[in-house]
Design a binder for these strands. Structure first.
Lengths: 150, 150
DNA sequence: CCTTCTATGTTGCAATTGCAACAAAATAAC
DNA sequence: GTTATTTTGTTGCAATTGCAACATAGAAGG
């Protein structure tokens, strides 16, 4: 049933592509919306956790964050307790863009799930959530350099 | 219910990341497995159709194909009927790698869907398939330069 | 306390990615 | 049959992406 993972890949690339072109209007370049929404929803997050949540490389997240700071969407603040980490917060500008991102996502959602019953939407979400939980263990392990046996 | 699209994004990035590290062993660089499997399963395909199927930019597909040719995984052949297109076929080397890709995908599949009943797997596939069909219309439209209204 | 290990962050390459802009063949429209 | 449009392909930038390798702060183990 590898078709499932293919469908997921197709959907993800299509959505990402659409979002990227639509968010250029707000001066967000490729992929940045991913980070900005998560920071808005989890103010104080650090970039390491961001990378884990989004499932990208640490250095990729680091650069996306740097650019978001440069363009005034977010702030990095020192933590008095832990001098190693930098906590991330949306700026006013970031907070302004956030609802626009959500609006776009909601629209894509409506398009993707059009014709679905409430029940089907619930089911899809729960199944995907479980699959994600399953696969993220492997992702973390492989990312740390472990080899999967099969 | 925008969480659905987020879960899809997370799963897709995690799986892609895992596959990319695992396929380095066969000298396939980032993303190439995507194209190679489709060419093996649809010999004679042209790169334009590949891009559409995979949901990437035409030029991205063009470059992935070029590299697969360079590294001896596929062949490009002229069509006697249509001098514009180049049909793509796996080489012996490509055909050898194909089952290894499938094996990896099957493993990821088992991991992602572990704990799922046959019924749940069926359901998930059909829901995803419908969602993909829904969203690919928008993708094609946006790719052509159209603007979505919402 | 000291050493070791983990967490978090960075910079330097080398590659993929994608938009614009172009080309040329094929198809559609008249 | 000629012109316009669509299909298919390319190359030139400019950007994101990610691995390797490094740095340093904090935590754990003794």
């Amino acid at each position: 049933m590898k078709e499932i993972l293919r469908e997921i890949g197709m959907i993800a690339r299509a959505l990402d592509s659409i979002s990227n072109t639509e968010f250029k209007e707000y001066d967000l370049t490729k992929g940045q919306y991913l980070y900005l929404v998560r920071i808005c929803e989890n103010p104080g997050f650090i970039q390491e956790k961001l990378a884990e949540m989004i499932k990208v490389d640490r250095t990729t997240a680091a650069r996306a964050v740097k650019k978001l700071v440069m363009n005034g969407f977010i702030d990095r603040r020192d933590d008095p307790k832990n001098r190693k980490i930098k906590k991330l917060f949306p700026t006013e500008k970031g907070k302004t863009v956030y609802p626009l991102i959500i609006r776009e996502h909601d629209h894509s959602d409506r398009v993707a799930l059009s014709g679905f019953s409430e029940n089907e939407i619930e089911t899809l979400f729960h199944l995907l959530h479980r699959a994600r939980k399953n696969i993220e263990k492997d992702w973390e392990s492989v990312k740390k350099g472990n080899k999967r046996i099969y």
